[in-house]
Computed example of a mutant assay.
Amino acid sequence: MSVFFITGVDSHIGKTYATGYLAKHLLENGVNVITQKLIETGCKGNIAEDIITHRHIMQIPLQYVDHQYVSCPFVFRAAAPPYMAASLENIPLYPARITVATQQLRLQYEMVLLETSGGIMTPLTESLLTIDYIAEQGHPVVLVTSATLESINHTLLALQAIAQRGLTLHAVIYNQYQHSAATVDTDELTPDQVLQNEQLYKESFDTHRVRNTLLKNTRLYLQQYLKQHHPDTFWVELPYISFSSQISHYLKPEVEKKNVISHPAYSIEKYAQEIADNTLYAESLYKKIAKR
């Protein structure tokens, strides 16, 4: 039985989509998997919104453990760091309660994907960072990053923090989707509207060129860094995920093929299959030993 921490280099980096999409493919590969949210902040309802998104992507209904708040024991309304959100609502935040919830899930499922709140250095309490909690638990880490202006800086800082604490870095998931703050208004216009206006056309062309350059160069730089410093870590490409009504759409990533030395890239489907093969083999081996 395995637990993976799914964490990120920042907020709004794609952790929730990566967690749900990975869980979806683990299910399809025969793994009895569940997702968990460390702490949810900025939530309007009683059940964590990220858990609801996980189930949507996994294409399953909310589970019993969701309704019993085992999959996310702490849900706060304030959009703030966990310790601050807990203080605003005058609710004690005990990390041990999260640990017990994870243990409960491990008794029922072969695998738990535990999504953190915010970035890897986000404070859970006034004296405990997310990375400290991860280190205490000792589960392998999956780090989600993306191609933004500060991605390389944030990712290298996260990787160094992980290395300094001696954590197992299982994978880096590269989310090609760039947050809407990084886009321009031309994205909302039709091609005809852009073509009819020379200034808009130039702006759209420049934005597209810069965005693609950022995607390719950030990917290459981080892959080469992993090859040098974390050679056993998986590099995984996350497709762009969008929702239309009750249907999820997935746009496969386009990985440029060049004759350059970089870290081998996995699709998230192939990555899930690798995990599933190892998990199911370990489970069958454990059952054989238990019978003896």
Rank of each mutant, 00 (worst) to 15 (best):
residue 151 S to Q: 04
residue 156 L to T: 07
residue 179 H to F: 12
residue 101 A to I: 08
residue 173 I to M: 12
residue 97 R to E: 12
residue 150 E to K: 07
residue 75 V to R: 10
residue 53 T to C: 12
residue 130 T to G: 05
residue 108 Q to N: 04
residue 117 S to L: 01
residue 141 V to R: 06
residue 171 A to M: 06
residue 79 A to N: 15
residue 87 S to H: 13
residue 46 N to H: 14
residue 183 T to I: 11
residue 53 T to H: 12
residue 54 H to S: 01
residue 133 Y to G: 12
residue 121 M to Q: 10
residue 61 P to Y: 10
residue 132 D to C: 08
residue 144 V to H: 09
residue 79 A to V: 11
residue 77 R to V: 14
residue 68 Q to V: 15
residue 112 V to C: 02
residue 103 Q to W: 00
residue 129 L to G: 03
residue 156 L to W: 06
residue 79 A to P: 15
residue 54 H to Y: 08
residue 135 A to L: 10
residue 68 Q to D: 13
residue 168 T to H: 08
residue 183 T to A: 14
residue 154 H to F: 06
residue 59 Q to H: 13
residue 76 F to T: 04
residue 124 L to E: 03
residue 134 I to Y: 11
residue 152 I to Q: 08
residue 96 A to H: 10
residue 111 M to P: 02
residue 86 A to F: 10
residue 98 I to K: 02
residue 179 H to S: 13
residue 91 I to S: 13
residue 128 L to M: 15
residue 75 V to Q: 11
residue 86 A to V: 08
residue 66 D to Q: 14
residue 138 G to D: 09
residue 145 T to P: 08
residue 151 S to Y: 07
residue 134 I to A: 11
residue 95 P to L: 14
residue 61 P to G: 12
residue 174 Y to G: 02
residue 55 R to S: 01
residue 126 E to I: 06
residue 107 L to F: 03
residue 175 N to C: 07
residue 171 A to S: 06
residue 178 Q to K: 07
residue 163 A to H: 11
residue 147 A to D: 07
residue 164 Q to E: 03
residue 169 L to G: 00
residue 94 Y to T: 12
residue 184 V to T: 15
residue 176 Q to I: 15
residue 53 T to Y: 03
residue 49 E to Y: 05
residue 115 E to V: 01
residue 159 L to M: 05
residue 168 T to N: 13
residue 145 T to E: 10
residue 115 E to F: 01
residue 161 A to P: 05
residue 121 M to D: 04
residue 183 T to P: 05
residue 175 N to S: 01
residue 90 N to S: 15
residue 140 P to S: 07
residue 124 L to P: 00
residue 166 G to H: 02
residue 108 Q to P: 04
residue 96 A to L: 12
residue 96 A to N: 07
residue 122 T to P: 05
residue 93 L to I: 10
residue 63 Q to S: 14
residue 190 T to V: 08
residue 101 A to E: 04
residue 189 L to T: 09
residue 54 H to G: 03
residue 177 Y to F: 15
residue 120 I to V: 07
residue 82 P to T: 11
residue 79 A to G: 11
residue 176 Q to Y: 13
residue 138 G to P: 07
residue 137 Q to P: 07
residue 148 T to I: 03
residue 81 P to N: 15
residue 155 T to R: 00
residue 85 A to F: 13
residue 120 I to W: 01
residue 162 I to Y: 00
residue 138 G to F: 10
residue 145 T to R: 04
